[in-house]
Design a protein around this nucleic acid. Structure first.
Lengths: 207, 207, 207, 207
DNA sequence: GATGAATGAGGTTTCATTCAT
DNA sequence: AATGAATGAAACCTCATTCAT
């Protein structure tokens, strides 16, 4: 973003917005949507509450903006990782590694999504906002393309639908990360991405 | 549970408790934790609100009891499925099938866990209550035992840690189910469990 | 109302309701609907604000209940006055006298309707709630019946529609009362009802 | 007003003021004083909110200016009507007709006074601002003069105080107009002013 | 033991007004 | 002079929890 090119007023506005989002981010990720008040956010962001409402229509709106912004960043990083790499296996390795790094290096981000889930959640990406869901599906398609290309190259055997493989890989990465989050020593996230990847590459039974 | 052996008074109490939990279940799964009031639950359960508080310390406590009870049922069914089957592959098939059936046949149960997640949730089973987490780990160990036994039998190649395989399989099943939940026509849950299982059994690359 | 016959609990409830209405009456009539807060009413009535909301759904609801209750009392008195009297002229005299007395003896009641009108109001009974309007029309019909009966008896000449006469008489009484309210010395309300009545009874021009 | 003679700067200011008042008029008459914000007025008038405050001390002040301006126009028209006509009856007819036309042809003006009255209003011109009240009394005196002159001419019998007659006539016209406003088909405003006037001219009982 | 009326802190949101630019 | 972003008090209303009956 070329914020430097914007008029001073616009830049200032953007900066304020970022400060509000930052304050909200901290609070929401620590306490969950329902346990944070607009008053609290305003105090933390050092703005009057009315100013908050000049930038966001309501609490829901603020939350959505926050989530989308965070997802943007995350997605960009992961998408870049998918792009990098000479062959399909390399690309998948980059994906597993990058997602792991990003996730573990940005715990508040993760908590933003988990903080609200009271007690338990069996889900992945369910209850997603329409917008977020669309993005997630688009991402899965991109991941599926790698498997597809690998199959077309004969680098991979044609055992299952590439989309299914994408769903599976992504969910397994999530699962390992969440185990790690819960008990890092008990469930260390594998430094070597092949630890996860091999589950898909090597079969359990011979053909 | 052998409720018949309990004194009449105790039996009565248990029945009341169940009615409260049933009412709470309906409401929480439909509207999410924060959008249900104790008053609402009391009305639906046809008890005075004060009576609710004789059975549960507070709203949080009621919710936890509810979640644990529901998980109990779910786990029992899935554990039974794991037990059934002549060989390891059969057991895994039963697991994939049963989890799918239970999940899809009990949507309110699923919503109980999802209703609250605002906007997004990348996670699986994170934010779990201590108790629930412990159970989940215990369940994973049981699932891992199947892979372990398969490896010891030479039915499976020894490609990865059995615990990792358990984590992976469980998360993939969840992922498919959540896709199905979100858009059943677009993401039909496979009738044949092998569709999912093959991802793990057949490898993508030759050894 | 036979409040003594009601169960104690009901009686208590009714008493509380009356206290709330009384507090609201005072405040609304002094400051107008928009300048009174629910908090203020709660404090004045010596109840918690939540208790207020157990009796009335919201501020609007409380206001309506108040207005209707006050109108009930007023209407009853005026209706009784219309009933009393041997002939039509006597009935009309009673009406003019009673309305004057009631009105002047219950200033807060009057202010309840005027307090809100900011600055000015050319109207009478406009902006009335559906319910109130219906009542008002019903009352006019009753007043018209007196003129009608007078005409049928030949006691009155048949110069205009009785309903018009009713509208006219009522509005003139209101007008005199409002002038009095504004400046009692300058515009004393006539002790003798004939002062007002004669406007209608005696014509300005000979037939 | 001879705006052409004023310096350009003054003329400009006056024009701006009129635009503000026009915007406020539309909004207040549609939604009532309390349901219109200064922000809304500023946007509609296409001025900055701060500029609004350079012309009017506060919201109340703006409202008063608006009401007074509107009353001016209305009064002028009605006063002219009173002046016109060869004899007293003709003058009164003109008054009844003109007030009816003005009122019915300028509904927003009427709503300006009614929009705020919550639920009910028994009043006419009560709660009037000091200034408005003075004007209203002055107008009544003018109307009374017609009756007075009629009596002095022997055109009218001397049955009551001319001022009383003025009050009565004005209030009756108001009453008919408000009935019409509320339900035009049910209460059509009489095309022929004599329908109203006759109530005062012809008596109900013979002398 | 069961009841549910009462509580009041605290939630979200609005808006008249100010004042630095 | 004109602007409009910023302010924050205050509005309405909800609801988890208590406790006298």
């Amino acid at each position: 973003m070329q914020t430097e090119k914007l008029p001073r007023r616009e830049r200032e506005k953007l900066r304020q917005r970022q400060e509000m989002l930052a304050a909200a981010f901290d609070l929401f990720s620590q306490k969950g949507y329902h346990n944070v008040s607009m008053h609290e956010i305003a105090v933390k962001a050092e703005f009057a509450i009315g100013t908050l409402y000049r930038f966001f229509d309501n609490k829901e709106d603020l939350y959505k903006a926050l989530v989308l912004e965070q997802c943007d960043k995350f997605e960009d990083a992961v998408a870049r990782a998918i792009g990098d790499g000479d062959d399909e296996v390399e690309k998948l390795r980059n994906y597993v590694r990058t997602k792991g790094e990003r996730f573990r290096g940005n715990l508040p981000f993760v908590r933003l999504f988990l903080a609200e889930s009271r007690g338990a959640s069996f889900n992945i990406k369910a209850g997603l906002d329409e917008e977020l869901r669309k993005r997630y599906y688009a991402f899965l398609e991109r991941l599926a393309l790698i498997f597809d290309s690998g199959i077309k190259n004969k680098r991979f055997k044609n055992v299952t639908d590439p989309y299914h493989l994408a769903v599976a890989l992504d969910s397994v990465v999530d699962a390992f990360l969440l185990l790690w989050l819960d008990a890092p020593e008990r469930h260390p996230y594998p430094e070597d991405p092949d630890t996860i990847l091999d589950i898909f590459l090597k079969g359990l039974v011979d053909p």
